[in-house]
Design a protein around this nucleic acid. Sequence first.
DNA 1: GGCAGGGTTCGAACGGTGTTCGTTGACGAA
DNA 2: TTCGTCAACGAACACCGTTCGAACCCTGCC
Lengths: 236, 236
Amino acid sequence: MSQSPWQPISPPKPPRPAKAPLTRERIVDAAMRLIVEHGYDAVSMRKIAQELGTGPASLYAHVANKGELDQLLVDRAAQQMKLSDEPDPANWQEQVKDYMREMLRVMRANPGVARAAIGQVPLVEHAMLSTEKLLAILKAGRLPDQAAAWAADLLPLYVTAVSFEETVQNASNWTPADVERFVGEMRTFFADLPADRFPVTVALATALTAGAGGDERFEFGIQVITAGLASLAEPS
Amino acid sequence: MSQSPWQPISPPKPPRPAKAPLTRERIVDAAMRLIVEHGYDAVSMRKIAQELGTGPASLYAHVANKGELDQLLVDRAAQQMKLSDEPDPANWQEQVKDYMREMLRVMRANPGVARAAIGQVPLVEHAMLSTEKLLAILKAGRLPDQAAAWAADLLPLYVTAVSFEETVQNASNWTPADVERFVGEMRTFFADLPADRFPVTVALATALTAGAGGDERFEFGIQVITAGLASLAEPS
DNA sequence: GGCAGGGTTCGAACGGTGTTCGTTGACGAA
DNA sequence: TTCGTCAACGAACACCGTTCGAACCCTGCC
């Protein structure tokens, strides 16, 4: 207050520190780093901004909103997919399975991406390129157009759902021992249900809790779906 | 009373209005009403409390947290599933499909429940009873124990994922006209892609955008999965 | 060289979220 | 009647995504 009246009050000009300019690229980088390290829910616009040494408002000059950022994350992940060689009509079923395995691998390598991807038609570049590849494999398998198109929706949906499930369950970094203990508890929970009302559940308690964390359950899923697709192929 | 003038100030005692007591039941009722009417994202502890004429803190005497409330909502929905008659070995594939149709029906009738259910092992009463039914059908279909168990995981996962997808896309009450316009835009978007890099996508533009809102795509999915399961049945 | 203008940066704020704290009040048991 | 218990609740905490407006920097034109 006691400043002299004639003195314009704005003396403390902290010079804007020279920083690397903000870009879409750097924002997605930071978001990806955080998501891999702390999971989807722990990633907010504020945290990303903090990671970049700025405020949340700065991000909105490069990204429309969090939804768009999610799409960019999906694209970044899709970019990591190693897509195979030419579609091979003799081998299409195995190629479909490989596609799904590769998709799951990438989603596991980028936890949280599944959460961003689910329920979104992938309209970004690399995601669409991988869909193109999948469609080519399906057509090589002599699937009718409509079946191929819907399958290109069904397959990623399954993989994404599986990955999403894993994301939710792996929330807050369980150790393998934790998982094993939890699965054990669940098995005895199933086994101890009243046998008159849950006869089959009790009988299958072991099977129901088998392969919870591993790949067997996923392999089962892609086997079922691929076999189901094969039944729709046109005769050669 | 008759306290001296320097009495501690706390005179205005508005009498607590006599209200119907809060119960778990009434909380779930209110949440269900709101979720059906406004969708999952519009439902918060505050809104639920407001609907009940109280504050959010009051809810926590009956419900541990929002996650538990989600589980209760899932159970409430599972309760609405009309589960069929006895498992019929001759008809098990159709029974599996009916089960999935019924599950989707209930999830559509309770938008947002899919969001609460995905990635959660259903350990609440009615959800488990429906799983028991499903397992019985699968065993009637002569599936090996392990296949039946994993299928009982795969099938609800698919239905939930489909419903979740619909939930996300139907966010903010699109009219059928809106949907049609959007689908049309997407079709031309696919059709106008560079044909050298997206040959199959361009060729299948129509098929890719067919049956977006209807049941055909879902019917395709359950057909594929059921056929795939059938291929795993043990010979009778 | 000076200057206008457009994009970038960013502090502050808005309206929302889930959850917790400490107090209040009603009611059943002693 | 008194006491103890526990549901109810107002207020607050620490967040969230997003917007606004002012300051700032760089570029291109006169």
